[in-house]
Design a protein around this nucleic acid. Structure first.
Lengths: 142, 142
DNA sequence: GTTTTTGCAAAGTATTTGCAAATGG
DNA sequence: CCATTTGCAAATACTTTGCAAAAAC
């Protein structure tokens, strides 16, 4: 029932481009870089393939507050830090484990396919002690 | 240095509207509802005030994959489930605690202001066993 | 009275989509 | 060959913004 997949040089180049990056590039950054190999590639093709590669599980999409989505080829689960000012995404340096305090999650009907943990704030470059943020870090209990 | 705040009937109505909801409404839903009280209110005003209320910490914004942002007046930290198909957001039924396995987070320069935990998948209504999702739930280690 | 906020409309940003032509198997 | 993918351009979805008038204090 599902459509057959055909190989495409553009898709391969897009995947290779994401894999070259350790810095969670946006679709537009990937477009700019792949354009050096395929000068006539369109942004639509880049979006289409990033979306396809995400749904195939080859890469992972990071959806960011008010900024363009980013893509990550590291599939092992890890938490991200997102800068609220410049939109930069980085891996959160600590390893984190989720503890389920109660098991009412068993009540959940439907299907869980993915999970994500984000920390928000201001990155080293954007953090200015003269303009403090409006919220403080909530406790670890979620 | 920060601008003085003046009261506004529209802003109050918007906050009250968010507080009436347990279902994480979008800006547009709030707009539709507040319009019953203020028929000439504009979507721009709704966005401006939701953004202001968020930065004041009165409400919380939930940024969703490919869907309109949602707003939540429950400030105690809790995890959310986001349906990848219909965009519906619900509270995740289990309480969760984050455990930091190592403390390299101390290396982090910048400011952390917020954190969030999302589970993605298909909600009860959208889950159809005939069209299984492409990924399985990654382990709890992040 | 001065400053903030509003309504309106227009612009902006990120992403998706329709379609004929090109490509892949 | 036939199905999938591409490039292009236009459309969409959501959100922000400029500005004169209205409201708040």
């Amino acid at each position: 029932m599902s459509a057959q997949r055909k190989n495409s040089r553009q898709r391969n180049a897009i995947l290779e481009c994401v894999k070259k990056h350790e810095d969670h590039p946006t679709a537009d950054i990937i477009y700019q870089e792949v354009r050096e190999l395929f000068p006539h590639i369109s942004l639509g093709t880049v979006y289409r393939n990033l979306s396809l590669l995400t749904s195939l599980g080859s890469i992972r999409k990071i959806s960011c507050n008010n900024h363009a989505d980013r893509f990550d080829w590291h599939l092992e689960p890890h938490a991200h830090f997102i800068c609220s000012r410049c939109g930069k995404v980085s891996n959160f340096p600590s390893k984190i484990q989720l503890q389920y305090i109660n098991d009412s999650g068993d009540d959940f009907r439907g299907l869980i396919t993915d999970q994500s943990i984000f920390f928000y704030g201001y990155c080293e470059n954007c953090y200015n002690p003269d303009s403090p943020a409006d919220e403080s870090l909530p406790g670890a209990k979620i």
